[in-house]
Amino acid sequence: MATGGRRGAAAAPLLVAVAALLLGAAGHLYPGEVCPGMDIRNNLTRLHELENCSVIEGHLQILLMFKTRPEDFRDLSFPKLIMITDYLLLFRVYGLESLKDLFPNLTVIRGSRLFFNYALVIFEMVHLKELGLYNLMNITRGSVRIEKNNELCYLATIDWSRILDSVEDNYIVLNKDDNEECGDICPGTAKGKTNCPATVINGQFVERCWTHSHCQKVCPTICKSHGCTAEGLCCHSECLGNCSQPDDPTKCVACRNFYLDGRCVETCPPPYYHFQDWRCVNFSFCQDLHHKCKNSRRQGCHQYVIHNNKCIPECPSGYTMNSSNLLCTPCLGPCPKVCHLLEGEKTIDSVTSAQELRGCTVINGSLIINIRGGNNLAAELEANLGLIEEISGYLKIRRSYALVSLSFFRKLRLIRGETLEIGNYSFYALDNQNLRQLWDWSKHNLTITQGKLFFHYNPKLCLSEIHKMEEVSGTKGRQERNDIALKTNGDQASCENELLKFSYIRTSFDKI
């Protein structure tokens, strides 16, 4: 039985969820670079991206490699990797027998973001014989899940209580170790020597080791999670996991709180800001991140802002960003909400898709409305799209047979046209069989910064309504002859009103 693990408890099935942008060198404390989270699957090609990484700022997932063999891993080693800020997950990587050479110096898994409450997941690794993470000293947050690894031993010899604050939620089941077939031998045991430290858990006094050649490092209890030197002297209180010299914040392997210019500090002093819960960055760093993602459509890219001495992905609820200094300031009234469309555009074809934009005031991208039916549609669209004030790209209304009016965009005031449909149009209306009105132009103002209007096959939309939009939106004169079809717009509506004058002759039985 794995020490510190839980057996036999019912657990939810383990679901495996399925960018080499360097964020800056980590400095003297770390020998390499800070790398983003990685999802490495199918083959070993991307694994080489770990070569210079000291910190993975995010998670590391290595999974679904069915053609790899043990010899493929023999020359692979990433000794610079010290810390993973989120979680480490391995799933069905064939041929991998140990992690001792792959990650010989991995010391800390912070667990800032977890995989279903777990910071370390080893699942269905069919050839893994031992973990071998002999320098792993601290899992700051989260638990361990090690399950269905039929060859995995050296679990009962690990004292997880020396690595985690609590072992109650560890789930370590259905491994070879369960069948008591392992016969784990710690260093020196074969020669009758006791080389590794022994600890007591559940009444068992057991030597602690990761492999037959690597003991588990056990520091004096007084050192807590700070770690200790090879001689057993406690590291500085700002260290986490390990250090090369005692009581020196510049000799830590990793930091308990924050890293700044080669030393570990309790908090980031001005003019620095907390970033990702582990390091200090200056304003320029946060500003660069903001600008890199301002026009990016890459998933996970955030326009970072500053709030409460932190550089964070977005302002919290009730705050909006001051564009001059990136500071989050309290909103006066309802907060603006910028919604970034991942692929640059979004099609609204149902109430469900409209709900995804609920509360958005600025759309960074283009909207395509293609709704053919739905219950209580006008009210639903207004509830979900009615706060949109600005669209950076274009607005396209296409084959939306259920629409009679666009009044559900009740606050839309600006279409920038930074991206144009077919390279020309910022407003595009095609084949809307029941569209009769755009907006009530006596109450609604709309500016279209650039781009043209396109109207074709809107049989109940009168040309007068379209011409009014040209005047109000500032697009009059931009359109070419064929942009607004004269014969297919309003051709099934009563669009022309003329005053009919009647004269009559009164007659009676005795007068003409």
Score class of each variant (00 low, 15 high):
T68H: 08
D159R: 07
A254D: 15
T320R: 08
D184H: 08
H214R: 06
G333P: 04
K100G: 09
I82E: 15
G262W: 02
I139L: 07
V173E: 11
N325C: 11
F78I: 11
P316I: 08
D169G: 14
N43P: 03
E124N: 12
D288S: 10
G142H: 01
L88V: 07
D261S: 10
P246L: 11
N170M: 06
S143H: 14
N52R: 11
K100F: 11
H212V: 05
M137R: 11
L240S: 06
C315Y: 02
L89R: 02
Q204F: 08
K191P: 08
D277Y: 11
R141N: 15
H236K: 02
I201R: 07
P70N: 03
I122W: 00
R113G: 12
S225D: 07
L233Q: 11
N138R: 15
C264H: 00
L164K: 12
G37N: 13
T250V: 06
Q299L: 05
R41I: 12
E151Y: 13
P187D: 07
D261W: 03
C239V: 01
F285Q: 13
P270H: 09
N325S: 15
C243H: 00
N138A: 06
I62K: 00
R110I: 10
V253P: 01
V305Q: 05
N117W: 06
C286Q: 03
R297K: 12
N138E: 02
F283P: 08
H226M: 10
T189S: 11
D72L: 04
L44C: 06
N202G: 14
C219T: 02
T199E: 07
N309I: 03
V305A: 12
Y154T: 08
S161K: 09
C234L: 01
E33L: 09
G58S: 01
E97Q: 15
G58T: 01
Y259A: 11
K294Y: 13
K217Q: 05
T68G: 07
H290A: 09
K148L: 13
P220M: 03
D75H: 05
N195K: 09
E168F: 07
Q303S: 11
R297E: 10
D159L: 14
K100M: 09
L106K: 00
K129S: 09
V206C: 00
C223T: 02
L327I: 12
C228I: 03
P313Y: 03
L120R: 01
V55Q: 10
L128Y: 01
R145V: 14
S213G: 12
C196F: 10
E147S: 14
G32R: 14
H48S: 12
L128V: 03
I84G: 00
Q303M: 12
F275H: 07
Q287E: 15
Y304S: 04
R110Q: 12
Y134F: 13
L240Y: 13
P269V: 10
G333I: 03
Y171G: 13
K80E: 05
G300F: 04
G132R: 01
P270Y: 10
I306M: 04
N42D: 10
L89N: 01
T211N: 12
C252M: 03
A190L: 10
C223G: 02
H302P: 05
E71F: 12
N325Q: 10
S161Q: 15
E207S: 06
C215Y: 08
D165Q: 06
S213C: 14
I56D: 00
P271S: 10
